[in-house]
């Protein structure tokens, strides 16, 4: 069935956004979306990591959970969402301010929202010294409603809920996903491993997986070895780092530090059979 022009636009705009997100993965903090790992080991002054039941979160010096105000959800209310939190919002949320003399280095993109002076006029580029939210490092500074304010992962202006208690994450996802706790996932480890080995953050630590996200494990199976599927390599595979290839079996199998490696086949790909030990970097 033919797709009309308007239908294309209705469907295409969000779809294009999705493509963009795939190219710059996981910049979101909402719990139902992938949580991007931290890339920085230094935080704004006073910010620390606090333990939480489901996720570790960033907290301020008083131990109060930091929340990110996702600017993307607020475009309807203000063409510059960085200025959104005033009046009623400011009465509830305390911004994590940068030093007063700090120079902002990020701004909410104008893009489609830029007023067109004349047809065909391209939107102005970023001012010198600014980065786009898509390419932002973990911590940047934006010109907020109360002055220079910290931003996490490009989109999340950082606040503390006034009157909250230490360890409280109650408002995670509040107001339609506008307010989300700033969840901390450690930086991805650098691997020296076969090319189809990756690292997955699960159960509070990184585990090694195959390219499909199934955890790798070693160990000794008991009498019944169902589920102990060898992690195979190619005939031409070569040893790398702590990994060696054993070509003796019918299919070459990877060994890690001398132990045969298997790959989980379970419905929960992060679990392993009894007797198995998850490989961790």
């Amino acid at each position: 069935m033919a797709v009309t022009r308007s239908q294309f636009w209705l469907m295409a705009v969000p779809a294009l956004s999705l493509i963009g997100s795939a190219m710059t993965p996981a910049t979101a903090q909402p719990a139902d979306l992938p949580i991007p790992p931290a890339t920085a080991s230094e935080y704004p002054q006073g910010v620390k990591i606090a333990k939480s039941s489901a996720y570790n979160v960033y907290a301020n010096k008083r131990g109060l959970t930091l929340y990110g105000m996702d600017m993307r959800t607020l475009l309807r209310w203000n063409p510059d969402p960085a200025k959104y939190c005033q009046a009623e919002c400011a009465a509830k949320w305390e911004p994590l301010l940068a030093p007063k003399d700090a120079k902002p280095n990020i701004m909410f993109p104008r893009g489609f929202g830029e007023r067109r002076v004349a047809p065909g006029t391209p939107p102005p580029g970023l001012p010198a010294g600014f980065v786009s939210p898509q390419a932002a490092p973990d911590w940047t500074i934006i010109d907020g409603a109360a002055g220079p304010q910290w931003v996490y992962k490009g989109w999340h202006m950082v606040f503390v809920r006034k009157g909250s208690k230490r360890g409280s994450n109650d408002l995670d996802g509040a107001e339609g996903g506008t307010w989300n706790t700033l969840k901390f996932v450690p930086p991805v480890p650098v691997l020296t491993a076969p090319s189809n080995v990756a690292a997955l953050f699960t159960s509070g630590a990184y585990a090694l997986t195959d390219k499909d996200g199934r955890v790798l494990f070693t160990g000794q199976c008991d009498a019944i070895c169902d589920g102990w599927v060898p992690f195979t390599g190619g005939m031409a595979s070569r040893a790398i780092g702590d990994w060696q290839i054993n070509t003796a079996p019918d299919a070459p199998q990877w060994h890690y530090r001398g132990k045969a490696v298997f790959v989980s086949q379970r419905d929960d790909p992060t679990s392993v059979p009894a007797g198995g030990t998850v490989l961790r970097p």
Binding site: P14, S17, G20, L75, P133, G176
Partner: peptide, 14 residues
């Protein structure tokens, strides 16, 4: 859902 997780605007996800 409308283009959830988009880099410009995630209202769709909500």
């Amino acid at each position: 859902t409308w283009g959830q997780g988009g880099s410009r605007d995630i209202r769709g996800n909500r």
